[in-house]
């Protein structure tokens, strides 16, 4: 099915940026179209466009108005989007992220069990049983806004946010789950921690994944956590799936 470009809205963000709004509601379908546009721009390039920031329902495009006018840019973006076809769906990249759900790594596990009425094994099984789509990155570098968390795991944020959450902490905040890529204040309930460096400024790609990729968590022991944390050559397994 070809998606028509006529539902697009171009929202002005001043003289050097424009936000392309694809829809008013977030959905995987909308996200696929945004991902398609981002990939097209990345592979083909649009002269004068410096960067694109994909989000839930839109994409913000930064441009040099003296190289490409807003009008021409909007026309080009609409053209690209109208060339999207559902059948061109590509493989999905799934990042396998090890998480220790035990003891000190999971300070809010007991609370989450209480709030959800599940036992720890159930929480871990449910949390590791889904591929989470990364809708967008924001808030912090590499902080993934993930879709698809099982409703049974929903738990409200802490009433008083923590002043420091360590890098790699995995938490639940309302309907969402995610990873803190670097130490930061935050109000999510922490149910585990990954030893993987989601953010590494010295790596060629400082952030492991990008919007449109998937994350799958798998449980590890405290010992495995230590081993991976100590191994500077550890690489995260990435699976390409259809």
């Amino acid at each position: 099915m070809e998606v028509s470009a006529d539902k697009l809205r171009f929202l002005s963000c001043g003289d050097s940026a424009v936000t392309v709004e694809f829809a008013k509601e977030m959905s995987e379908q909308t996200n696929r179209r945004i991902r398609f546009l981002a990939a097209k721009i990345e592979s083909e390039g649009i002269k004068g466009v410096s960067e694109c920031v994909p989000t839930f329902c839109s994409m913000t495009v930064y441009f040099d108005p003296f190289v490409i006018s807003r009008k021409k840019l909007e026309k080009r973006l609409a053209e690209i989007i109208s060339s999207y076809e559902e059948s061109t769906e590509s493989k999905k990249r799934v990042f396998l992220i090890p998480v220790c759900y035990d003891g000190e790594y999971a300070p809010d596990m007991d609370d989450v069990c209480m709030l959800t009425g599940l036992d720890k094994k159930q929480v871990v099984d449910i949390h590791t049983g889904t591929d989470y789509l990364i809708y967008m990155l924001g808030f912090l570098p590499g902080f993934p806004y993930l879709g698809g968390m099982d409703k049974r795991l929903e738990a409200p944020r802490l009433e008083t946010p923590r002043t420091t959450i360590p890098a790699g902490a995995v938490g639940i905040g309302g309907k969402q789950t995610g990873i803190y890529p670097l130490a930061s204040p935050g109000g999510w309930r922490l149910i585990g921690r990954t030893p993987v460096k989601v953010y590494d400024p010295d790596r060629e790609t400082p952030i492991l994944y990008k919007a449109g990729d998937y994350i799958r968590f798998y449980p590890i022991t405290g010992q495995e956590f230590e081993n991976i944390a100590a191994d500077s050559d550890h690489t995260v397994e990435v699976r390409e799936e259809i």
Partner: peptide, 10 residues
């Protein structure tokens, strides 16, 4: 709003 991009000067 559903989170979207923030340009400088927003």
């Amino acid at each position: 709003i559903i989170s979207d991009g923030i340009a400088t000067g927003s």
